[in-house]
């Protein structure tokens, strides 16, 4: 069983500047921060290296960090400009009985993260969910469609109403002729 510090050391040695840091400030497990366009390489390394053997992606979740500047439109709707969206990966090694949390942060204006679908198959639907609710685009994902919201959601919604779990989300007035707000 390796501690997050040891895993961070191994990754930094192997990937140098693609590993951005180790966050131990939170009352959670330590979080390793990684470049969003290198996550597939590092994931492959984590799953195949003897001693690490992270064979299970327990959870992959999108997060809106809401750390941009808040801008008010003329009609009073608040929008977040700039800042980042994040994806968290919770990995587990069944053989080694160890866990690790990985975070990648990507620009809100152009949220692009490499897919890890060909390493852990469970990532397929999780990445579709993060795409559906946050609009994070997973590069090289085999089937990046909406998974929960209707496929035609975009046609009825303005840009601010496309991705419902973003912090500046605003409900559309109508969907297929049905009034949406209460």
């Amino acid at each position: 069983m390796k501690s997050p510090d040891e895993i961070f050391e191994i990754l930094s040695k192997e990937f140098q500047d693609a590993v951005l840091g180790l966050d131990k400030e939170n009352p959670t497990d330590a979080i390793i921060k990684i470049d969003p366009l290198k996550i597939h390489l590092i994931s492959r390394f984590l799953s195949e290296t003897p001693g690490l053997e992270f064979d299970s992606l327990m959870c992959l979740s999108g997060v809106d960090d809401a750390n941009g500047t808040k801008v008010k439109d003329e009609d009073g709707t608040e929008k977040i400009d700039g800042g980042t969206l994040s994806v968290f990966y919770h990995l587990h090694s069944v053989n080694r009985n160890q866990k690790i949390t990985i975070q990648v942060s990507t620009l809100r204006t152009e949220p692009k993260v490499e897919s890890v679908e060909n390493i852990w198959k469970s990532a397929n639907w999780h990445e579709r969910e993060a795409f559906d609710l946050y609009g994070i685009i997973f590069l090289n994902h085999p089937d990046l469609r909406r998974i929960l919201m209707p496929y035609d959601w975009d046609e009825f919604a303005e840009e601010i109403s496309r991705y419902p779990l973003r912090k500046d989300y605003k409900n559309p007035e109508f969907y297929q002729g049905m009034k949406v707000p209460y």
Binding site: L148, V180, P181
Partner: peptide, 15 residues
């Protein structure tokens, strides 16, 4: 879900 349910129809009598 009346306020924050972005996915919920607020009453079937709308349809």
């Amino acid at each position: 879900y009346w306020e924050h349910g972005y996915h919920v129809l607020k009453g079937i009598d709308r349809v």
